Amino acid sequence: MNRGGLRVLVVDDEQPALDELAFLLGGDDRIGEIVCCQSATEGLRTLRESDVDCVFLDIQMPGLSGLELAEVLGRFKQAPPVVFVTAHEQHAVDAFDLDAVDYLLKPVGRERLAEAIRRIVSGSDRSRTAGDTQVPVERGGVTRFLDRGDITHVEAHGDYARLHTTAGENYLVRVPLSTLEEEWRADGFWRIHRSLLVSLGHVEEVRTESGRTSVRVGDVELPVARRHTRELRDVLVRRASGGAS
């Protein structure tokens, strides 16, 4: 994030909608420069010529659509976060498949826009502190910061993931399990089931009964899929003997 605020690109083929969103963004003190484009092609040209901190992107536009532009951005070495702004709710699944930060329905309200900006800023802060062991979670409008070492296992929950802690609490985060698997593997989180990651450091017991394997984490018993069983045992043995995971 720039010290003078976020540099934002807004792309919408409808001038009134473009003007309205730019006006709302300009009223937030976390926003610095606002660049407006009336087509995805023009937006792509802008992105290739200069850096932006985030993109607010309409979906349905003549020619290159917002979803298609987001797919192109996903191939950038350092892709800016994308917030989709649209009147069409049916595109939400496609938007989050493209790792959108947020999905706003028109007409956009100030409070909802402020939440989207908060998510962008929060993501920027995390990217600057890669390897940080704290994980921001929300509940009841309050943001807490969990120590990753206190997370025992992670459960898939649609496009979200549910984090379970040593204190017996759980928190829902807007991150797919596959993303956490990739990002947290170096910290000892291992896939044991299509819907579960487990923190190897919290595994107290591996049990096999009637051909079915499970691990015990505190008072919780978690199933291990057959195809993950051998690999899990191997990595636990290596950790126990002081080897790398």
Rank of each mutant, 00 (worst) to 15 (best):
H164D: 06
G168Q: 06
G168Y: 01
D159G: 12
W184S: 13
I151R: 05
T213H: 09
R212S: 14
R191G: 14
S210Q: 14
A116F: 11
H153S: 03
E205R: 15
R139S: 13
G168P: 04
S199R: 03
V154G: 10
A116L: 06
H164W: 15
T152W: 03
L172E: 11
V206K: 00
G158Y: 07
E138V: 07
N170V: 04
V175C: 00
R126W: 03
S199Q: 02
V203G: 05
R162E: 15
F145W: 13
Y171R: 03
Y171K: 07
A167Y: 07
A116V: 09
R174N: 10
L146G: 02
I117V: 07
S178N: 11
E209R: 12
E221S: 05
P223G: 00
E183I: 12
G141N: 11
V198R: 00
R207K: 06
L146V: 01
T179V: 15
G141S: 03
L177P: 10
G201E: 10
G188I: 11
P223I: 00
I117T: 09
R174P: 14
E182C: 01
V137F: 08
L222M: 06
G188T: 11
L200W: 03
T166C: 04
P223D: 01
S178V: 05
A156H: 05
E221L: 01
A130P: 14
G168F: 07
H202S: 04
L172I: 08
R191E: 07
R139E: 10
E138R: 04
S199A: 09
H193N: 13
T133L: 04
V217F: 01
V137D: 09
R118M: 02
D132E: 14
V142W: 05
S124A: 07
E204W: 05
R212M: 10
E183T: 15
T213F: 01
V206A: 12
R148V: 02
T166V: 01
A186G: 15
A167V: 09
S199T: 02
P223V: 01
R194D: 12
L177D: 13
R185C: 13
G218N: 06
I192A: 01
L177C: 09
S214R: 01
G140T: 03
L197D: 10
A161I: 09
G168V: 07
R216Q: 10
D219H: 14
A225S: 13
L180N: 07
E169A: 02
V121L: 12
T165D: 13
D147C: 00
R119E: 05
R194G: 08
E169K: 08
H193W: 14
E138L: 10
A167H: 15
V173H: 14
F189D: 13
V137N: 04
V203R: 08
G149D: 06
E182L: 02
V206I: 14
A116R: 06
T143P: 15
R185M: 04
R191D: 08
L163Y: 10
R207E: 15
I120T: 09
E182P: 14
E182K: 13
N170R: 09
T213K: 06
S124N: 12
V175N: 08
G168C: 05
R185L: 11
H193S: 12
V135E: 00
G140D: 09
V203I: 03
T143K: 11
W184C: 15
P136F: 02
E205H: 04
L180Q: 10
V224W: 03
E204S: 15
G141Y: 08
P176W: 00
V142Y: 08
P136D: 03
G141F: 08
L177Y: 10
D150I: 00
L200V: 03
Y171N: 07
